[in-house]
């Protein structure tokens, strides 16, 4: 095959807007369903997208989401220019959250965002600089024989 077919999607995630949060995740789900991918793959992509979106809304006043779909994998990149994560190791712990009380009152900020993103993706990398922003890269393998397993 000369060039692999690739679906590239780009979304603006608006900050402080809980009503529209989840829109990018919804659109990605729609695309994946049209490709007829297995429900478990779609579910995992939906969860990591949604958690990532919510994180950007809560902590970073929004950002950008880039999604690349091939017949082998789904790559998701979430980029924001928010406050950055001081201690990534701590942020990865289940139940740890820096979300303000007002956000927690809405049922968010349970400290499961990043842990769930790691749990439901096959590969996750975080780059973050305090004061500059955070980039999260995630990959979900579509073909079970390819490397990387769900943890």
């Amino acid at each position: 095959m000369s060039e692999q077919t690739r679906i590239s999607l780009e979304f603006d995630v608006e900050g402080d807007n809980f009503v529209s949060a989840g829109k990018a995740s919804e659109a990605v789900k729609g695309n994946l369903k049209m490709l007829g991918l297995p429900p478990t793959i779609i579910r995992r992509a939906a969860i990591v997208m949604y958690e990532g979106e919510i994180n950007m809304v809560i902590h970073a006043k929004g950002g950008k989401a880039y999604v690349d779909i091939t017949d082998k994998d789904i790559s998701i990149t979430l980029k924001d220019e928010g406050p950055g994560i001081e201690n990534i190791e701590l942020a990865m712990q289940e139940g740890y959250s820096t979300a303000p009380d007002a956000i927690r009152a809405l049922g968010f900020g349970a400290g499961m965002g990043l842990p769930n993103m790691k749990k439901y993706s096959d590969n996750m990398e975080i780059e973050s600089e305090v004061g500059k922003g955070t980039t999260v890269r995630m990959k979900i393998n579509i073909q079970p024989d390819s490397e990387g397993q769900q943890q």
């Binding site: 077919t5 049209m34 091939t70």
Partner: peptide, 14 residues
């Protein structure tokens, strides 16, 4: 919802 059974055809359509 599925565009085509062949994922490559579905991807081209999508």
């Amino acid at each position: 919802m599925q565009l085509d059974e062949d994922i490559n055809v579905a991807m081209a359509l999508l």
